[in-house]
Protein backbone atom coordinates (compact mmCIF):
# COMPACT_ATOMS: atom_id res chain seq x y z
CA UNK A 1 0.00 0.00 0.00
CA UNK A 2 2.76 2.43 0.98
CA UNK A 3 4.76 1.72 -2.14
CA UNK A 4 1.63 2.29 -4.24
CA UNK A 5 1.12 5.66 -2.61
CA UNK A 6 4.78 6.56 -3.18
CA UNK A 7 4.59 5.48 -6.82
CA UNK A 8 1.54 7.65 -7.39
CA UNK A 9 3.21 10.56 -5.61
CA UNK A 10 6.32 10.31 -7.77
CA UNK A 11 4.29 10.31 -11.01
CA UNK A 12 2.66 13.62 -10.04
CA UNK A 13 6.00 15.42 -9.69
CA UNK A 14 6.63 15.82 -13.44
CA UNK A 15 3.01 16.99 -13.89
CA UNK A 16 3.48 19.62 -11.17
CA UNK A 17 6.77 20.76 -12.70
CA UNK A 18 5.17 20.95 -16.13
CA UNK A 19 2.34 23.08 -14.76
CA UNK A 20 4.79 25.44 -13.09
CA UNK A 21 6.68 25.89 -16.37
CA UNK A 22 3.42 26.50 -18.23
CA UNK A 23 2.15 29.04 -15.71
CA UNK A 24 5.52 30.77 -15.60
CA UNK A 25 5.93 30.96 -19.37
CA UNK A 26 2.40 32.09 -20.26
CA UNK A 27 2.34 34.84 -17.66
CA UNK A 28 5.93 35.99 -17.21
CA UNK A 29 7.32 36.00 -20.70
CA UNK A 30 4.34 37.47 -22.53
CA UNK A 31 3.27 40.00 -19.93
CA UNK A 32 5.50 42.83 -21.07
CA UNK A 33 8.16 44.36 -18.86
CA UNK A 34 7.31 43.82 -15.18
CA UNK A 35 9.84 46.46 -14.20
CA UNK A 36 8.03 49.10 -16.23
CA UNK A 37 4.67 48.02 -14.76
CA UNK A 38 6.02 48.07 -11.21
CA UNK A 39 7.65 51.45 -11.76
CA UNK A 40 4.38 53.12 -12.68
CA UNK A 41 3.98 56.19 -14.88
CA UNK A 42 6.59 58.61 -13.62
CA UNK A 43 9.61 56.36 -13.72
CA UNK A 44 13.05 57.03 -15.13
CA UNK A 45 15.10 54.63 -17.23
CA UNK A 46 17.62 54.28 -14.38
CA UNK A 47 14.88 53.34 -11.94
CA UNK A 48 13.53 50.71 -14.34
CA UNK A 49 17.05 49.34 -14.71
CA UNK A 50 17.38 49.19 -10.91
CA UNK A 51 14.10 47.27 -10.59
CA UNK A 52 15.19 44.91 -13.36
CA UNK A 53 18.40 44.18 -11.46
CA UNK A 54 16.49 43.68 -8.24
CA UNK A 55 14.01 41.22 -9.83
CA UNK A 56 16.69 39.39 -11.79
CA UNK A 57 14.99 40.20 -15.09
CA UNK A 58 18.29 40.50 -16.96
CA UNK A 59 18.96 36.78 -16.49
CA UNK A 60 18.10 34.16 -19.13
CA UNK A 61 14.55 32.80 -18.96
CA UNK A 62 15.48 29.42 -17.47
CA UNK A 63 17.39 31.13 -14.68
CA UNK A 64 14.42 33.39 -14.01
CA UNK A 65 12.18 30.33 -13.88
CA UNK A 66 14.42 28.53 -11.39
CA UNK A 67 14.60 31.67 -9.28
CA UNK A 68 10.83 32.06 -9.37
CA UNK A 69 10.28 28.37 -8.58
CA UNK A 70 12.71 28.33 -5.68
CA UNK A 71 11.02 31.39 -4.21
CA UNK A 72 7.56 29.92 -4.84
CA UNK A 73 8.49 26.68 -3.13
CA UNK A 74 9.43 28.70 -0.07
CA UNK A 75 6.07 30.47 -0.22
CA UNK A 76 7.37 33.71 -1.73
CA UNK A 77 5.42 34.74 -4.84
CA UNK A 78 6.84 38.24 -5.11
CA UNK A 79 5.08 41.56 -4.69
CA UNK A 80 1.65 42.29 -6.17
CA UNK A 81 1.82 44.99 -8.86
CA UNK A 82 -1.59 46.30 -7.95
CA UNK A 83 -1.99 45.86 -4.21
CA UNK A 84 1.70 46.65 -3.53
CA UNK A 85 2.00 43.97 -0.87
CA UNK A 86 3.53 40.49 -0.80
CA UNK A 87 1.35 38.13 -2.85
CA UNK A 88 1.55 35.46 -0.14
CA UNK A 89 0.14 37.84 2.44
CA UNK A 90 -2.56 38.94 0.00
CA UNK A 91 -3.56 35.36 -0.71
CA UNK A 92 -3.63 34.39 2.97
CA UNK A 93 -6.05 37.23 3.66
CA UNK A 94 -8.42 35.86 1.01
CA UNK A 95 -8.25 32.14 1.80
CA UNK A 96 -10.95 31.96 4.46
CA UNK A 97 -14.05 32.74 2.35
CA UNK A 98 -12.96 30.34 -0.36
CA UNK A 99 -12.29 27.54 2.11
CA UNK A 100 -15.64 28.03 3.85
CA UNK A 101 -17.38 28.07 0.49
CA UNK A 102 -15.60 24.93 -0.74
CA UNK A 103 -16.17 22.93 2.44
CA UNK A 104 -19.84 23.90 2.62
CA UNK A 105 -20.34 23.10 -1.07
CA UNK A 106 -18.71 19.74 -0.67
CA UNK A 107 -20.87 18.93 2.36
CA UNK A 108 -24.09 20.05 0.65
CA UNK A 109 -23.24 18.12 -2.53
CA UNK A 110 -22.38 14.88 -0.81
CA UNK A 111 -25.38 15.05 1.53
CA UNK A 112 -27.74 15.54 -1.42
CA UNK A 113 -26.09 13.61 -4.23
CA UNK A 114 -25.20 10.29 -2.62
CA UNK A 115 -28.65 9.54 -1.10
CA UNK A 116 -30.33 10.79 -4.29
CA UNK A 117 -28.10 8.74 -6.59
CA UNK A 118 -28.50 5.65 -4.43
CA UNK A 119 -32.28 6.02 -4.31
CA UNK A 120 -32.34 6.51 -8.07
CA UNK A 121 -30.37 3.31 -8.59
CA UNK A 122 -32.45 1.25 -6.15
CA UNK A 123 -35.75 2.12 -7.84
CA UNK A 124 -35.44 2.74 -11.55
CA UNK A 125 -38.23 4.98 -12.84
CA UNK A 126 -39.13 6.33 -9.40
CA UNK A 127 -39.39 10.04 -8.55
CA UNK A 128 -35.84 9.93 -7.21
CA UNK A 129 -34.67 8.52 -10.54
CA UNK A 130 -36.29 11.25 -12.64
CA UNK A 131 -35.17 13.86 -10.13
CA UNK A 132 -31.57 12.67 -10.36
CA UNK A 133 -31.68 12.89 -14.15
CA UNK A 134 -33.18 16.37 -14.01
CA UNK A 135 -30.58 17.58 -11.50
CA UNK A 136 -27.78 16.16 -13.62
CA UNK A 137 -29.06 17.78 -16.80
CA UNK A 138 -29.48 21.17 -15.11
CA UNK A 139 -26.12 20.85 -13.39
CA UNK A 140 -24.34 20.25 -16.68
CA UNK A 141 -26.16 22.87 -18.73
CA UNK A 142 -27.11 25.86 -16.60
CA UNK A 143 -24.11 28.07 -15.86
CA UNK A 144 -23.24 28.57 -12.20
CA UNK A 145 -23.79 32.32 -12.40
CA UNK A 146 -27.33 31.83 -13.71
CA UNK A 147 -28.12 29.45 -10.85
CA UNK A 148 -26.60 32.02 -8.51
CA UNK A 149 -28.88 34.81 -9.71
CA UNK A 150 -31.90 32.50 -9.63
CA UNK A 151 -31.16 31.71 -5.98
CA UNK A 152 -30.60 35.37 -5.11
CA UNK A 153 -33.86 36.26 -6.85
CA UNK A 154 -35.83 33.66 -4.95
CA UNK A 155 -34.29 33.51 -1.47
CA UNK A 156 -32.83 36.97 -1.01
CA UNK A 157 -35.14 39.26 -2.94
CA UNK A 158 -38.54 37.46 -2.95
CA UNK A 159 -38.34 35.74 0.43
CA UNK A 160 -35.76 37.97 2.12
CA UNK A 161 -34.18 35.03 3.95
CA UNK A 162 -30.50 35.62 3.21
CA UNK A 163 -28.26 38.59 2.49
CA UNK A 164 -28.10 39.40 -1.23
CA UNK A 165 -24.33 39.63 -1.48
CA UNK A 166 -21.19 39.91 0.56
CA UNK A 167 -19.43 37.79 3.12
CA UNK A 168 -19.25 37.73 6.91
CA UNK A 169 -16.01 36.48 8.37
CA UNK A 170 -15.95 33.56 10.78
CA UNK A 171 -14.75 35.98 13.46
CA UNK A 172 -18.14 37.76 13.12
CA UNK A 173 -19.86 34.58 14.22
CA UNK A 174 -20.35 31.28 12.44
CA UNK A 175 -24.08 31.86 11.91
CA UNK A 176 -23.52 35.08 9.98
CA UNK A 177 -20.92 33.27 7.87
CA UNK A 178 -23.33 30.45 7.20
CA UNK A 179 -26.10 32.87 6.20
CA UNK A 180 -23.81 34.63 3.76
CA UNK A 181 -22.38 31.47 2.20
CA UNK A 182 -25.37 29.13 2.03
CA UNK A 183 -26.69 30.46 -1.30
CA UNK A 184 -23.28 30.58 -3.00
CA UNK A 185 -22.62 27.02 -1.90
CA UNK A 186 -25.99 25.88 -3.21
CA UNK A 187 -25.27 27.54 -6.56
CA UNK A 188 -21.83 26.04 -6.68
CA UNK A 189 -23.16 22.65 -5.63
CA UNK A 190 -25.47 22.25 -8.64
CA UNK A 191 -22.65 21.23 -10.98
CA UNK A 192 -21.19 18.95 -8.39
CA UNK A 193 -24.52 17.38 -7.44
CA UNK A 194 -25.23 16.63 -11.09
CA UNK A 195 -21.90 14.92 -11.54
CA UNK A 196 -22.01 13.02 -8.24
CA UNK A 197 -25.62 11.86 -8.56
CA UNK A 198 -24.97 10.35 -11.95
CA UNK A 199 -21.83 8.52 -10.95
CA UNK A 200 -23.39 7.32 -7.67
CA UNK A 201 -26.37 5.97 -9.56
CA UNK A 202 -24.17 4.24 -12.14
CA UNK A 203 -21.77 2.65 -9.68
CA UNK A 204 -24.53 1.57 -7.29
CA UNK A 205 -26.38 -0.01 -10.21
CA UNK A 206 -23.27 -1.97 -11.08
CA UNK A 207 -22.80 -3.28 -7.54
CA UNK A 208 -26.50 -4.11 -7.08
CA UNK A 209 -26.19 -6.94 -9.56
CA UNK A 210 -23.21 -8.49 -7.77
CA UNK A 211 -23.51 -11.98 -6.34
CA UNK A 212 -22.66 -10.91 -2.81
CA UNK A 213 -25.58 -8.51 -2.76
CA UNK A 214 -27.92 -11.31 -3.81
CA UNK A 215 -26.41 -13.51 -1.13
CA UNK A 216 -26.91 -10.80 1.48
CA UNK A 217 -30.54 -10.50 0.43
CA UNK A 218 -30.97 -14.27 0.50
CA UNK A 219 -29.57 -14.37 4.02
CA UNK A 220 -32.46 -12.13 4.97
CA UNK A 221 -30.47 -8.98 5.76
CA UNK A 222 -32.49 -5.79 5.98
CA UNK A 223 -32.38 -3.56 2.89
CA UNK A 224 -30.75 -0.58 4.65
CA UNK A 225 -27.72 -2.46 6.06
CA UNK A 226 -27.26 -4.10 2.66
CA UNK A 227 -27.30 -0.73 0.96
CA UNK A 228 -24.85 0.87 3.35
CA UNK A 229 -22.47 -1.97 4.17
CA UNK A 230 -22.44 -3.98 0.98
CA UNK A 231 -23.49 -1.71 -1.83
CA UNK A 232 -22.17 1.76 -0.96
CA UNK A 233 -18.88 0.47 0.43
CA UNK A 234 -18.15 -1.27 -2.86
CA UNK A 235 -19.50 1.54 -4.99
CA UNK A 236 -17.36 4.07 -3.12
CA UNK A 237 -14.16 3.95 -5.17
CA UNK A 238 -15.47 5.52 -8.39
CA UNK A 239 -17.49 8.03 -6.34
CA UNK A 240 -14.35 9.18 -4.51
CA UNK A 241 -12.58 9.62 -7.84
CA UNK A 242 -15.39 11.74 -9.18
CA UNK A 243 -15.49 13.83 -6.01
CA UNK A 244 -11.83 14.60 -6.64
CA UNK A 245 -12.19 15.19 -10.38
CA UNK A 246 -15.15 17.42 -9.67
CA UNK A 247 -12.79 19.75 -7.84
CA UNK A 248 -11.89 21.18 -11.24
CA UNK A 249 -15.45 22.37 -11.76
CA UNK A 250 -15.56 23.42 -8.12
CA UNK A 251 -12.55 25.68 -8.63
CA UNK A 252 -14.00 27.15 -11.84
CA UNK A 253 -17.27 27.59 -9.99
CA UNK A 254 -15.59 29.36 -7.09
CA UNK A 255 -14.16 31.96 -9.45
CA UNK A 256 -17.60 32.65 -10.89
CA UNK A 257 -19.64 32.33 -7.70
CA UNK A 258 -17.44 34.72 -5.75
CA UNK A 259 -18.01 37.30 -8.47
CA UNK A 260 -21.79 36.78 -8.43
CA UNK A 261 -22.09 36.97 -4.66
CA UNK A 262 -19.36 39.53 -4.14
CA UNK A 263 -17.35 37.31 -1.84
CA UNK A 264 -13.76 38.49 -1.26
CA UNK A 265 -12.12 35.10 -1.77
CA UNK A 266 -9.33 33.76 -3.95
CA UNK A 267 -11.48 33.43 -7.06
CA UNK A 268 -12.58 37.03 -6.84
CA UNK A 269 -9.00 38.08 -6.18
CA UNK A 270 -7.92 36.31 -9.34
CA UNK A 271 -10.52 38.03 -11.52
CA UNK A 272 -9.57 41.41 -10.04
CA UNK A 273 -5.89 40.64 -10.50
CA UNK A 274 -6.39 39.69 -14.14
CA UNK A 275 -8.32 42.89 -14.80
CA UNK A 276 -5.58 44.91 -13.08
CA UNK A 277 -2.85 42.99 -14.99
CA UNK A 278 -1.36 41.99 -11.67
CA UNK A 279 0.65 39.06 -13.03
CA UNK A 280 2.43 37.84 -9.87
CA UNK A 281 -0.92 37.40 -8.12
CA UNK A 282 -2.51 35.68 -11.13
CA UNK A 283 0.47 33.34 -11.41
CA UNK A 284 0.38 32.48 -7.75
CA UNK A 285 -3.35 31.85 -7.58
CA UNK A 286 -3.42 29.69 -10.71
CA UNK A 287 -0.47 27.72 -9.39
CA UNK A 288 -2.01 27.26 -5.95
CA UNK A 289 -5.43 26.21 -7.30
CA UNK A 290 -3.84 23.77 -9.74
CA UNK A 291 -1.42 22.23 -7.27
CA UNK A 292 -4.32 21.85 -4.86
CA UNK A 293 -6.37 20.13 -7.57
CA UNK A 294 -3.53 17.76 -8.49
CA UNK A 295 -2.92 16.91 -4.83
CA UNK A 296 -6.63 16.23 -4.23
CA UNK A 297 -6.57 13.83 -7.16
CA UNK A 298 -3.45 12.19 -5.78
CA UNK A 299 -5.22 11.71 -2.45
CA UNK A 300 -8.23 10.26 -4.26
CA UNK A 301 -6.01 7.82 -6.13
CA UNK A 302 -4.39 6.72 -2.92
CA UNK A 303 -7.72 6.30 -1.14
CA UNK A 304 -8.91 4.37 -4.19
CA UNK A 305 -6.13 1.94 -3.33
CA UNK A 306 -7.43 1.68 0.23
CA UNK A 307 -11.07 1.23 -0.78
CA UNK A 308 -10.22 -1.28 -3.46
CA UNK A 309 -6.99 -3.11 -2.54
CA UNK A 310 -6.90 -4.79 -5.98
CA UNK A 311 -5.82 -1.47 -7.49
CA UNK A 312 -2.81 -1.07 -5.24
CA UNK A 313 -1.26 -4.46 -5.94
Amino acid sequence: MFSYAMRRFITTIPVLLGISVLVFLTLRVSSGDPAAILGGDAVTTEQIEAIRQQLGLGEPVWKQYLLWLSHALRGDFGVSYYYKMPVTQLILSRVEPTMVLAVLTLAVSILIAIPLGTAAALRAGSIADSLSTAVAVVGFSVPVFVVGYALIGLFSIKLGLTPVQGYHRLSDGALATLASTILPSLALATVYIGLLTRITRASVLEVLNADYVRTAKAKGLMPLPITIKHVLRNAAAPIVTVVAMGFASLISGVVVTESVFNIPGLGRLMVDAVLARDYPSVQAIILIFTVFYVLINLLADISYGILDPRVAS
Binding site: I19, L22, T26, A248, I251, M270, I286, T290, Y293, N297
Partner: peptide, 16 residues
Amino acid sequence: GLMAIPAILLAIAFMT
Protein backbone atom coordinates in the same frame (compact mmCIF):
# COMPACT_ATOMS: atom_id res chain seq x y z
CA GLY B 1 -0.31 19.02 -17.61
CA LEU B 2 -2.92 20.95 -19.61
CA MET B 3 -5.72 18.71 -18.35
CA ALA B 4 -4.52 19.08 -14.77
CA ILE B 5 -5.26 22.80 -14.86
CA PRO B 6 -8.98 23.52 -14.36
CA ALA B 7 -10.44 24.75 -17.67
CA ILE B 8 -11.30 28.26 -16.58
CA LEU B 9 -7.89 28.90 -15.01
CA LEU B 10 -6.12 27.77 -18.16
CA ALA B 11 -8.33 29.96 -20.31
CA ILE B 12 -7.79 32.93 -17.99
CA ALA B 13 -4.04 32.37 -18.03
CA PHE B 14 -4.07 32.55 -21.84
CA MET B 15 -6.39 35.53 -21.91
CA THR B 16 -4.12 37.37 -19.49
